[in-house]
């Protein structure tokens, strides 16, 4: 009889987790079904689309092609771990928003993880390095040019584009401040 489960320990997004996993379950399945980290997506299950891309010990892998037991002792980073614990977006996340690197969003977690890994190895990637580094992540909405621009933005450490979140936040602040006068009118 095959084993039912094996205990493993792994660090997921900075937190040490001890769990029992079935030997035939992939890391993707364990992340999604056992740890409820559904940011990593399931699509092709043959290592072609990259929707399930995560980092294991700093390297990008298709988590559909990794058994969870293989990750025993590993350090795993998923899309849920990119933002800082206080919710501040990582530069690459903000850049994807600013540049339009997101459409339907289903491939986005995988794109982000590949971009994150690319930038770790190539802080200032050339266009060719970006094309090559992102080729394992299919985007059928095909906002590839915007994804490339987002990687450029994150690499340059540039502030968000003018039309980005910062403008919206400022407008929102002004709006919040103005509320007082509206209440004043009521009185």
């Amino acid at each position: 009889m095959p084993q039912t489960t094996l205990p493993i320990e792994l660090t997921v997004n900075g937190t040490l987790r001890g769990i029992d996993v079935a030997p035939h379950h992939t890391l993707l399945e364990v992340l999604r079904d056992d740890l409820q980290l559904t940011g990593s997506k399931e699509c092709c299950l043959v290592g072609e689309c990259g929707a399930c891309t995560i980092l294991v010990n700093g390297r990008s892998v298709d988590s559909c092609l990794v058994l969870a037991v293989e990750a025993d002792g590993a350090d795993v980073l998923t899309v849920e771990g990119l933002a800082s614990p206080d919710g501040r977006l990582a530069p690459i996340q903000a850049a994807f928003l600013d540049q339009g690197g997101v459409q339907c969003g289903f491939c986005t977690p995988g794109q982000l993880m590949s971009a994150h890994a690319l930038l770790a190895g190539h802080p200032h990637p050339t266009r060719a390095e970006i094309e090559e580094g992102m080729a394992g992540n299919l985007c059928r909405c095909a906002c590839y040019e915007q994804i490339f621009a987002a990687i450029d933005q994150a690499a340059s450490g540039a502030a968000p584009a003018v039309t980005g979140a910062s403008v919206r936040a400022e407008a929102g602040d002004a709006w919040a401040g103005a509320k007082t006068s509206a209440e004043g009118l009521d009185q």
């Binding site: 290592g47 072609e48 990259g50 891309t53 390297r59 990008s60 892998v61 298709d62 092609l65 990794v66 590949s114 890994a117 690319l118 090559e132 580094g133 080729a135 394992g136 992540n137």
Partner: peptide, 9 residues
Amino acid sequence: VGSVQIRNR
């Protein structure tokens, strides 16, 4: 051989 993710494994 494959994508970056594949070559990493």
